[in-house]
Amino acid sequence: MSEDGRRLLIVDDNKVNRLLLARHIDLLGHPFALAENGRVALEMLRSEPFDLLLLDIEMPELDGFTVLEQLKADPALRDVPVIVTSSLEGMENIVRCIELGAEDYLPKPVNAVLLKARIGASLEKKRLRDEQRDLVRRFATPEVEQDLQQSGFALGGKRVRVSVMFCDIRSFTALCESQPPEETIELLNTYYMLMFDAIGGQGGVVTLMIGDGLMAVFGAPSSLDDCAHSAVAASLEMVELIDQFNLERTSTNRPPIHIGIGIATGDVVAGYTGTRQRATYTCVGDTVNLAARLEAHTKVAERRILIDGATRNELGDGISIEPLGDVMIKGKAATVDAFAVETP
């Protein structure tokens, strides 16, 4: 077994070729699986992870060229490196493989020494790509990472309709003063884990975390069919998760925490802001300010979730809403038609 146990998929319709490649891979110490044509290979790739594909071209049902095309078109699979192993006639066919995204081409019968070197190089390149992707995901989000992959990085943004959510922990400063900082970090980590689960589960993306506060966007960078509904559904789940978390806290004699959430829906400009060296994905516009103000107003209104009229108008039945009328909100010159989402 190789040190890292990275798994290969061998795709060949010819039994002798399949067995021979399997033997080579086995001797190299990599775990592997076998597929007898392109259709079976794609099914396997979509149901289990592989780190490298050894692909034949001439196959019945679905040939290697089609497999390469489908891999390239699938965001979840296009990073899987492919080494074509074939005895194709004609340079144009080999060029076609490379143009379709194959990392390398090895003529059959495959030379074992060359195969080892090519597999090693391909797996190393994939490892570096995976590391880079994980790093971006850790400091941005999987959605932003995907957006960067698809569209590339460019400062600036585009106008999109989204729902913006702000959330923070009530009386967090007082809570911090009453307990050691280690406990506060632990509390924040649990709080963020719960909030990320609820927000991500509804298709939202957390774009900002400051202390105990967070901003999330529903509808960018990937569009959502019903961003307002998704945001409100996430907020109800967040409140429910905090209630459950509080049961656990009070059972160990720790004070419960309370959160306030503000949601507004409308046009924003979403994109990358900063410099070419250091940038962040964010949304700007009055909708963002309104969501932040509504969140702050939850303290005054003594409600856990406040939403604006635009969000209210996009919600269907099934969510209980309490109209608060036109309210004066700090930081806004005109009154705001605000609504409270009723929570259990």
């Binding site: 319709d13 010819n14 002798v16 070729n17 021979l20 001439e58 019945p60 005895s87 006639e89 059959k108 019968p109």
Partner: peptide
């Protein structure tokens, strides 16, 4: 395709 397969194995 059948000729290709036989060629490939014969070379092996």
């Amino acid at each position: 395709r059948a000729a290709h397969s036989l060629k490939s194995n014969a070379n092996t």
